[in-house]
């Protein structure tokens, strides 16, 4: 591959937010990445905590004792919200990546209508689905199982 010359001008993580026209899908893209990273972090933590069972019952009880309390309840709630968004938006992305909902190629005539406009209903459905999941999760966390600890 040809190496680039000159002063480096790659935007880096800041480019997830800036450098465009700030469409709704860019927010979804950034949020999808951030929630994905959050879920990976949670899974690593989850494996670390539950692996204590391999060292006997006492280690397991001690390990579980370290992850109880209101801070962890809120943390788990945030993980659930991240899951709700990531799952719903992931379904939208899976649809789009199979070429569904982006429209067929056609001769562009100004003002241009792009695949982003075509898939907008999918994005709205994904957000509604995420909101529905989040509402169900909120009900479960703070009403139905309030104060219940594992």
């Amino acid at each position: 591959m040809l190496t680039a010359k000159g002063y480096p001008n790659r935007l880096g993580v800041g480019g997830w937010l800036g450098g465009g026209r700030w469409g709704m899908e860019r927010y979804l893209y950034t949020l999808h990445r951030l929630t994905g990273l959050g879920l990976i972090f949670y899974f690593l933590l989850h494996i670390l905590v539950t692996s204590a069972r391999a060292f006997g019952e006492a280690a397991w009880v001690a390990s579980m004792g370290r992850v109880t309390g209101p801070l962890f309840t809120v943390g788990e709630y945030l993980v659930f919200l991240a899951f709700a968004f990531h799952a719903a938006n992931g379904l939208r992305l899976a649809f789009i990546e199979l070429g569904w909902g982006v429209g067929k190629p056609f001769e562009p005539v100004y003002p241009y209508k792009t695949s982003v406009d075509f898939q907008r209903p999918l994005a709205i459905v994904a957000l509604l689905l995420a909101a529905l999941l989040a509402a169900a999760g909120t009900l479960d966390f703070f009403v139905l199982h309030k104060g219940v600890t594992p």
Partner: peptide, 28 residues
């Protein structure tokens, strides 16, 4: 992952995001 910015900024209405998704379908 379909941020769609390429299609929004394209001055010629080429819609690269659409081309990339259709290419993924072909690859699958």
């Amino acid at each position: 992952h379909f941020a769609g910015e390429c299609s929004r900024v394209c001055p010629k209405g080429v819609d690269p995001a659409k081309a990339i998704q259709l290419m993924k379908r072909e690859l699958v």
